[in-house]
Design a protein around this nucleic acid. Structure first.
Lengths: 200, 200
DNA sequence: AAATGATTTAACCAAATGGTTAATTTTTGA
DNA sequence: TCAAAAATTAACCATTTGGTTAAATCATTT
């Protein structure tokens, strides 16, 4: 493991746990078991190190689901598949949503928003939406609002994990199980919302 | 306006905008137009000042909706009413959700979770749930998962406001309008999920 | 008006923090 | 083998930050 890799691994941990403001360069150095000067030697400043980590991590959270997505024809199926794939990632990286959201909400530095791959979301949620709407395969919902809802339902428990765990009284393992079950539940909700009732 | 009130107002602003770590005592003093020593005179330390603000603000975000909630009989109606009331508060205080979530996610200090009024949520979502389920008035959904979903759909756009605005390309005013429209959309989703289709 | 207590201020402090530097060790390539 | 380049370290630095203090001002009561 090279020094650079050690730094990135440690920086990931610390930034994700503590956020930009809470993170300390010394702590990153300690966890990487290297001299603090190395951080600046490899990444110049705290800002540039953070930037690097954020870009790297965003690539993980918003992966190229869209590729596989194309094999699904209908909008409903696409959304359901998205939930499945997204949850696989979320369960693997449960701290990611809070990291991303706390970063894009930083008062002074709003430029991180531009690093989010919006195209990806648009592709998933709007591509087959209108054709399915016209052919009557889905109900008349607002695509924006619906997209926000699916994202919100998916991500919210991960943003409130500490509170969730306390509210329901569970540990990390049980939380993970609950999230696993949640996939089917959410897919069910999506179908109930989208698929019209056939008044035979 | 007393000095104490000036401090609280300024501290609210700064803590909500910058978070605990990002907030500076000097900036709070500047905005309140008082000497920094007054902050410690009235609230001893940054921690105690923050505690005060958090407690105060939580009372606003989780108000006594539950009282009015009781006049609604059915579970579906209760949830719809909750969304209405909750959105009134959210539109008024759009920064609150991020403030609360970033606080309960603080690594070192997880005790803020205990200050959240969980009872309130339980009351709303579980009280009439089971009776309505047994009488067949609502579909068989998991009450936990459903509660998380409603909360998530409601709160998510406020957590991602800066990104939302950029994604859809709107300003603050338009965002507020979008959220106003969202109330009906969400109530619709809730009904579609909960109310069973009558197979006549 | 004087004494008392509460409030406010300016100056100060120690610790922490991001960042630098000059010297040292390790690696590399001719 | 040896010099140049790259990597690493310890010590250091300027600034910022939460917090303190002692003196000054203001308000209240007698």
């Amino acid at each position: 493991m090279t020094t650079e890799e050690k730094i990135i691994k440690a920086a990931e941990e610390v930034f994700i746990e503590q956020g930009y403001d809470g993170a300390r360069m010394q702590e990153i150095a300690d966890r990487a078991e290297i001299n603090k000067a190395m951080l600046h030697y490899y990444f110049r400043s705290k800002d540039m190190l953070f930037e690097k980590i954020f870009e790297e991590k965003v690539k993980v959270v918003f992966p190229t689901i869209s590729e596989q997505m194309k094999s699904y024809e209908g909008f409903t199926d696409k959304v359901c598949f998205f939930i499945e794939q997204y949850y696989e990632i979320l369960i693997k990286y449960p701290f990611m949503p809070f990291f991303v959201i706390s970063t894009i909400n930083r008062k002074d530095d709003k430029h991180f928003i531009d690093k989010l791959p919006f195209g990806f979301i648009k592709e998933i949620f709007f591509e087959s939406f209108f054709s399915d709407l016209q052919s009557g395969k889905i109900r008349e919902v607002n695509p924006f609002q619906f997209a926000i809802s699916v994202m919100g339902m998916s991500v919210f428990p991960f943003l409130t994990r500490p509170a969730m765990k306390k509210l329901i009284g569970i540990n990390d393992e049980q939380f993970q199980m609950l999230m696993q079950q949640r996939i089917e539940e959410l897919k069910n909700y999506v179908r109930l919302i989208l698929i019209p009732t056939n008044h035979a």
